[in-house]
Design a protein around this nucleic acid. Structure first.
Lengths: 222, 222
DNA sequence: GCATTTTTCTATAGAACTATAGATTTTTGT
DNA sequence: ACAAAAATCTATAGTTCTATAGAAAAATGC
């Protein structure tokens, strides 16, 4: 078993020998292979044989990279999400209009789906098959992400760019929902135009939250 | 094996003996048990033993109601969707404003999630695990549903209630995406308020599509 | 070029699961 | 109450899958 596998994720504190670097590189290929297979067949529908075949190695050899099938799922989910939350943090720290931020967020979300292919999809659809204890990091990342998004919306309200009556938590969840839904479509259908999808998603969201002339048209609750 | 199991779904052409009625009633309980288990553990993560236990019978006895585990998934998906598309058809045929229709559609979608519990969730998340040939009816229903929704949006445009520049197909997919996303939340979190969620979803969608004063604020594509 | 380390392979133990068959219990109709 | 039908049970054959162990091959460092 390679030393990296026995270490906590990301704890690259030792000096990286070229061996370790090489292992890490191939481990990423392993994670991407697992992501692709999980995305197509679902976690329980995939076999370790499928993943190994995707990498071009034998079933047993896969355990050189993952100590279990479940660990593979965990690695895929974390891999798909970590990088993404970092991007989000950069977007939020920039000084720009709410419209530009929303556009940037949607762009980041959807282009991650396109570039990382399946890992994000697996994160969204299959992370709940991990036992709670193995979802600690994933959950932290998710919370951070949602809070960042709610922060952006709150800022938009304070600056009067967004209507004061929107529920930031609701809208945040909705944005995530729309993006995930279109993200899955983007993974499924390669012909779908990324830029156009981004544009349409942003427009839909903004026209739904931008403060407008008749700002609070009340509707009868019944 | 009961005679009903050997018949094509819904082909209740013979006079229904009380026996058949009783079987049909319990079969629905079986479908609902399967839906609950599939929703929690995913299709491949569930075992026939789990479903049987949910019904309070032994694993082998389950095959009195389903000829295979896969058939159970098919039945759950069709059960969760059929009734729903019918409701949609009623909504669309009524004469009412676009706002009222969207509200009704969202209400129907989300309250189906709440009342049917897990079947809709399973339909949305797991139907792709069925082989294509077993998804024919499901696909027809899905197409019908999407067309109905696009029809409503098209009508809204013609009546100038909705902006002319929206892409009905995009918006239809987005509505489905938002509803599914919130629907899953409603299933997961029983404390979530149904009516409020409906209200918020509708508002988000409408303010995003209703024609407004500054109707076509162009944005630079770059 | 040889010894060492890394990577992959083969083979398999052991567990879990689906589906079936035939026995058994429960329900129904007369 | 009794015979027929329906519903459920028990037991298991046969398959598939995960994970491990130990051998073999490939890569590396000196």
């Amino acid at each position: 078993m390679h030393i990296m596998q026995s270490m906590a994720n990301g704890a690259k504190t030792i000096t990286e020998s070229s061996e370790t670097v090489k292992y890490a590189r191939k481990k990423i290929l392993a994670i991407e292979a697992a992501a692709k297979v999980f995305a197509n067949k679902g976690f329980h529908g995939s076999t370790t044989h499928d993943i190994a075949a995707e990498m071009g190695i034998q079933q047993g050899s896969l355990y050189y990279y993952f100590k279990s099938k479940e660990q593979a799922l965990q690695d895929v989910c974390e891999y798909g999400f970590e990088n993404y939350v970092q991007k989000m943090q950069k977007i939020c720290s920039k000084k720009q209009s709410i419209e530009a931020k929303i556009l940037a967020i949607v762009t980041s979300h959807l282009s991650t789906y396109r570039s990382d292919h399946s890992a994000m999809k697996v994160h969204n659809e299959q992370r709940l098959y991990l036992p709670k204890q193995k979802r600690v990091l994933i959950k932290q990342l998710g919370t951070r992400y949602r809070e960042l998004l709610e922060g952006v919306l709150g800022e938009g309200i304070r600056k009067k760019s967004l209507r004061a009556d929107i529920d930031t938590q609701f809208v945040a969840y909705s944005i995530i929902g729309i993006c995930n839904s279109w993200g899955a479509n983007l993974v499924r259908d390669e012909n779908l135009d990324l830029l156009e999808t981004i544009e349409q998603c942003s427009t839909l969201i903004l026209r739904g939250t931008l403060s407008s002339q008749q700002s609070s048209k009340k509707r009868k609750p019944n």
